[in-house]
Design a protein around this nucleic acid. Structure first.
Lengths: 232, 232
DNA sequence: TGACTCCTAGAGTAATTACTCTAAAAATCG
DNA sequence: CGATTTTTAGAGTAATTACTCTAGGAGTCA
């Protein structure tokens, strides 16, 4: 069995995602994996240390995913990476949800987070430029920067946004995946105007693949307005 | 003097924005405007009631701002409305920051929020369509929907995002305004690819007006990478 | 002035919760 | 096996904090 230290992290992550860090006590975590509170505090100095450890784990994942091998990128490559990143962000969604509070409490975390964002954006810019070199997108450096920031904020905020709209189905794995896919669709929308060549050819298919109309869009755009003309 | 009830709201809003709702006790609020805790509880049943009242006030503001008069819109008109909306979202930034928690706790709030988002997106769609009719933007209904959702999420998340990157200067009014303006810039970036006609003519000027390069972009993109070529 | 309602004060309480402490079991090692 | 270190248990504590309760001031209207 994996060691207690990482089992604590896994359990905490689950509970945090489900109920929000604020609503999960250290006793809950201990109870959640069948150990005593004292035991938990033997492994982690305090609750903040657990959060910090989860944060570290998350950062490493993202950093790895944003490390792209040499050579020209295909559009499929890029989408594959992208799904991984969104997936990681999704798995640690409680972090972004309660980020403001963590950063408010912990100056060291603040410093590290700032570096993390800067580093991620730089790596993202490298990727986008590589895509531009491959003729898959067309945009100025300035446009790329704007796009990148928007992509980042959207990706980081999407889990919290959708969870707010549909918090009833807590732990519904299928719905979760649907909402995650819709998030990818939204980011495709973000990039769509800049796509060229092969990427443009796949755009419609991509949109088709990730749009989850009936679940999410109908959640957002209620039936009140005129339907998309076709469905009638 | 304004009545105690709204003074409580104003004080609470300030403190919540500054420190996060979680870190502001009812005693803090009372102390903040020089009344007793008991007095506060005479006016509001509990802390959640204060949040709910602020939420209500915020929703009304946004709803009003998204109610656009008849007739064709100019691009300037639209930007004017937009600034107002962003401003309102900024003033109630603690709400979006801690939204997940509030929605988690209160089923009624959840219902109202969902309706609010749907209503806002519908109103936004009306505005975008009107801009399309005026020849200021060109996009399919589907593209408009995607754009709209992204705009909403970005606008709602921007305050929390920037605050996370620079939480040291709490209450620095000048910096706050700068970050708000950068948020508008980001949304311009979002819309830019769809602009046509008169809107396109003003695009560069708009970007110029709202970009706050030295403060924010340098906050995001550290000096590590090659500078934008021009500045050297 | 007197009665009545609205508003205010502030000490006090009950419950939550992060965290501590002691001691014992389990594992590791010579 | 004996000694030492690592891991576990779980009862207990101190502090925070949302909220209550009683009692008194301040307008208002007859």
């Amino acid at each position: 069995m994996t060691d207690t230290k990482t089992r604590i992290l896994d359990t905490a992550l689950n509970l945090f995602n489900r109920a929000g860090e604020r609503n999960v006590t250290t006793n809950h975590i201990a109870e959640g994996l069948g150990i005593s509170p004292g035991n938990l505090y033997y492994h982690y100095r305090n609750k903040a240390a657990i959060v910090a450890a989860l944060f570290e784990r998350y950062q490493e994942q993202i950093r790895d995913l944003l490390t792209v091998p040499e050579g020209p990128l295909t559009w499929q490559d890029k989408m594959r990476y992208f799904e991984g990143i969104l997936e990681s962000m999704w798995q640690a969604r409680f972090l972004h949800r309660d980020l403001a509070h963590f950063l408010h409490q912990d100056a060291e975390l603040r410093r590290r987070y700032k570096v993390f964002v800067q580093d991620s954006l730089e790596r993202g810019l490298v990727i986008y430029r590589s895509l531009r070199d491959s003729g898959l997108i067309e945009a100025s450096d300035e446009e790329l920067r704007g796009l990148l920031v928007n992509t980042w904020v959207l990706a980081a905020s999407w889990p919290g946004f959708t969870h707010g709209l549909n918090p009833d189905a807590t732990g519904d794995e299928a719905l979760d995946r649907t909402l995650l896919r819709q998030g990818i669709y939204q980011i495709i929308c973000l990039e769509a105007p800049y796509l060229r060549g092969e990427a443009l050819d796949h755009l419609d298919a991509m949109k088709q693949e990730f749009r989850t109309g009936d679940t999410t869009m109908d959640l957002l755009f209620a039936a009140a307005e005129a339907p998309p003309a076709r469905r009638a």
